[in-house]
Amino acid sequence: MSNTAAEKVRTFDTRTQAKIPVESPLAYSYRRSGAPAPTAKSRVVLRERPFLGHLVLRGGAIVLDEAVREVLGIPLPGEPQGLVHDADGQRSIQWISPDEWLVIVPGGEEFALENRLRAVLGDAHFAISNVSGGQTLVELTGEAARELLMKSVIYDVHPSHFPVGKGVTTVFAKATVILRRPTETRWELVVRRSFADYTYRWLLDAGEEYGIGVER
């Protein structure tokens, strides 16, 4: 077997460089429900950002903060609901719980990142789980995006309560979602793969009155 007996945690790169066809969590939904192209009248636009690297980071804030700064160059958001991005906005870390953070990086970086974090963290008590295949990121932009969210999530998305740099886990219709606000004009939904079709159909339906368009 490939495992060494001495290994404490077995990491595994589930991604391959080989040219293998991949299907994003929304691939089926596009075929089933269609994807109306955005028009000039679209007051909200949806776009999936598939195949990103998603890592769940567990551990104490102080220990993880040092490692994350060293490896990713950005601080770990220590305050609840915090969301930070690196300078070019490609990599983010979000507070999920007092001992849990969600790291999202460009697809393909996640395994190397996990290994570097593990190397820096050494014997500290922590855990890293790769969930890249299990969730996808859906962006919403446009002036009606906030109202669309009001139809969908129970959390208060008013700008006074949901400033840029915030992210929460909350109820979305009858499912759950991680909702984030990376910029003034953009909202992000981190959606579990198995709920992606339901979420997509809900958004298309709720967005109909705003002429929702899907960018592909």
Partner: peptide, 11 residues
Amino acid sequence: EVYFNSVTDHW
């Protein structure tokens, strides 16, 4: 010292 994470949808 143990952590639990759901990876149901990943696989």
